[in-house]
Design a protein around this nucleic acid. Structure first.
Length: 110
DNA sequence: TTTCTGACAACAA
DNA sequence: ATTGTTGCCAGAA
C-alpha cells in the first residue's frame, strides 16, 4: 500500500488543486470527499498539514468566507496577506464577494 | 478504555 | 436575527 486513502490525503489533494487567486470552503471540500457534514475533519486535516507539502491552507475558509483558521498561521494576518497577494480582497478577516473567488473542487476533479 | 476537543455546518428554539 | 446544540471523524490526554 503506497497510496493512503486516508481522509486527510484526499483533503490535501483537493487543497493542492486550488488554483491561484481562488478559494474554497471546508464544507465544499468535505462534500466532495463524500461527507458534507465532516467539514470539521477538513480543518483538522489542514491542521496536520502544517509543515507538510505545499498545502495552501490560506485558500481554505469557512462557508462564510471568514478566515477562521488565520489563528493557526504564523503571523497575525499572514493568511489575509497571502490571499490579498493573490488578488483576493479581504475586509475584517472576511473575503469580499467570496462567490467570485470561490472554486468548486468537484469541477476541477471532474 | 473513555472523554474531550477541534481551522465547520446545519438545525432548533 | 441570534444563540445554543448536535453531527461528523480523528487524534490527544
Amino acid at each position: 500500500m503506497v497510496k493512503e486513502d486516508n481522509f486527510f490525503e484526499r483533503v490535501y489533494q483537493v487543497v493542492k488543486e486550488i488554483p491561484y487567486g481562488r478559494i474554497t470552503t471546508y464544507g465544499a471540500i468535505a462534500k466532495v470527499l463524500g461527507s458534507p457534514q465532516s467539514a470539521r475533519m477538513v480543518g483538522w486535516a489542514l491542521n496536520a498539514s502544517h509543515g507538510n507539502s505545499d498545502i495552501p491552507a490560506h485558500r481554505v475558509v469557512n462557508r462564510s468566507g471568514l478566515l477562521t483558521g488565520k489563528h493557526h498561521f504564523q503571523g497575525k494576518n499572514l493568511m489575509q496577506q497571502l490571499l490579498e497577494n493573490e488578488g483576493v480582497v479581504i475586509v475584517d478577516n472576511k473575503i469580499v464577494d467570496m462567490q467570485r473567488y470561490f472554486w468548486d473542487p468537484s469541477i476541477s476533479l471532474s
